[in-house]
Amino acid sequence: MSKTTPATAFLRRSNIPFETLSYDYDPSADRLGVHAAAAMGEPEDRVFKTLMTEVDGAAVCVVIPVARELSMKKLATAAGGKSARMMKPADAERVTGFKVGGISPFGRRKATPTILAREALEQPYIVTNGGARGVQVKLTPADALTAMNGVPGDVLAPLN
């Protein structure tokens, strides 16, 4: 797929190697990220979702595996704050320049601190949103961290 988005244009300008993947976006899917992983034939632990949050009122981008949940307490600690919450969808769209369901950690309108779940570092590659619904990018965790100007962090809720 050759669709250019602000995220893929950013990766190209930054000389970050990546592969573009696509799938049929289904807004009615219960868990969009899990649906995307299945539609692309990728393991759920290699497909990551982008969440926009607020830590002590400041925007923080968090990238975690699609089948896992974010721990707000761990996020607050990882970001050096006291409390964390999910950002409202309209605010996330305004801050990132992307539509919900297509928010990418790359090429966002406003740079914000970014945390990549440390579990990503255990993978040979990760797949994350490429800046549009149904568009994903595949790259190494090291390249992802560089491109998102992020840090790895312990942010996942425990498995049940």
Score class of each variant (00 low, 15 high):
S104F: 07
A111L: 10
A90I: 04
L145A: 13
A117H: 03
R85P: 07
K74H: 10
A144D: 12
V127E: 04
E54D: 03
L156E: 10
V95D: 04
K88C: 01
D143G: 08
L121T: 13
P141K: 14
T53N: 05
G57I: 04
Q136P: 03
G134M: 10
N129C: 12
R94Y: 02
G131E: 09
A92D: 02
L156H: 08
L121Q: 15
N149K: 15
L145P: 06
G101C: 06
R109Q: 10
S71C: 07
K110W: 07
T50I: 06
V55M: 13
E44P: 02
G57R: 00
S71R: 04
V135E: 10
R109W: 01
V135M: 06
L121Y: 12
K82Y: 05
P141G: 11
V151R: 15
A132S: 10
A59Q: 06
P89H: 14
I64L: 14
L116Q: 02
T140A: 11
R109C: 05
S104Y: 06
A120R: 00
N129K: 00
N149S: 14
K110V: 09
D91Q: 13
A59W: 07
C61E: 11
M72C: 08
P152A: 15
G134Q: 07
R85V: 09
K138V: 04
F106I: 00
A92I: 00
E44A: 15
G97C: 05
G134L: 06
T112N: 12
M87I: 02
V151H: 10
V135C: 05
A58Y: 09
M148D: 06
R68V: 03
G101S: 06
I103T: 08
L121H: 11
V66A: 08
N149D: 14
L51F: 01
D143M: 07
E54I: 00
A144L: 13
K99W: 03
M52S: 03
G102S: 07
K49P: 01
F48E: 04
L51D: 00
K88E: 13
L139P: 03
G102V: 02
N149Q: 15
